[in-house]
Design a protein around this nucleic acid. Sequence first.
DNA 1: GTCTATAACACGATAGAC
DNA 2: GTCTATCGTGTTATAGAC
Lengths: 189, 189
Amino acid sequence: MKPETRKDEIINTAAKLFKEKGYSAVTMRDLATAMGMKAASLYNHINSKQDLLKAIIISIAEEFTNGMTTIINSEMSNISKLKRVVTLHVDITANNTNGMASLNNDWMHLEDQLEYYLQLRDDYENNFLQIIKEGILASEIKQSNPEVIMFSMLSTLRSLYLWIPKKEDLNANDLAQSLSEVLIDGINT
Amino acid sequence: MKPETRKDEIINTAAKLFKEKGYSAVTMRDLATAMGMKAASLYNHINSKQDLLKAIIISIAEEFTNGMTTIINSEMSNISKLKRVVTLHVDITANNTNGMASLNNDWMHLEDQLEYYLQLRDDYENNFLQIIKEGILASEIKQSNPEVIMFSMLSTLRSLYLWIPKKEDLNANDLAQSLSEVLIDGINT
DNA sequence: GTCTATAACACGATAGAC
DNA sequence: GTCTATCGTGTTATAGAC
């Protein structure tokens, strides 16, 4: 772990506030108060409010892209790949719960990087869908609508940022395990 | 269907804009432009921006509460109750996709009604959890962590507002059916 | 019921002292 | 690196003509 610079502190504090109220409702004065300084002083470390959003969202989006690439290129069953996707989400979310809120809810307020973000998200979803389709072809996965399956899994995984902070007793491995069981094996006896 | 009053038109247009950018990022000027009038004219029909949010969120939240009460008081298996919950979400969301976005993402900007909303949400989740726990006791549902099951189902159901508008070809009954299969029966062969 | 004009204030960001 | 002061603009909402 590198030591946290003052800029990193600001970014992390911003992510926390953005999670609570959303990007648009957080003012630079709010952020400054949370940092124990005046709003003008923030600009010695950052260029703009928009840069904060960019720093929060793009780095996480790229983490997902890299993780997905590794999974896609690996040699394992499609069910195992899905379980690896679950673990990917649990790990990234556990490491940056606040940032995940911005990724999910404030991406539309990106300015210069909006298209890039949408491209990454689109590629990610296509890869996710591909794993499911190949799993169905290989008879590892039930003959259901692949898009419904992806929608359901992805909705759950994208909501993890709301849930992980409330369940601190559950460690990442146990949570990924429980989630895989529920998402993949179902709940019906 | 009652004829839509001018006030209803404004509320529905507001819901659409709130879905796109969030409550805080939508200005009364944006709303007025979308309505083809000037911002000042809006105030002949509504009292404040906050009132719009209240009208959108609280009515839907009460629909969920009423629907859940009916399900809880009905005589059927717990698995059937869960399927009815899925249908409840699909129906309400199909009827008011835009409003569901505010319910999910902008509830924290409620002022006077915030506590009331949180109370309704809390009661709803407790009832949901109760169905799952009784289903496990009755051996209808697998011995998994009930909270993980609820979290997973509810995350998916709460995301429906994003998905339903993109899949207009799927009717409500078919969607509820597919979702129940995936959420309750799982995807593993 | 819609308009123009404007009040009263909050916003992001900058200038320049220390 | 933090401060005070402030610019220029955008915000919700109201007043009053038509």
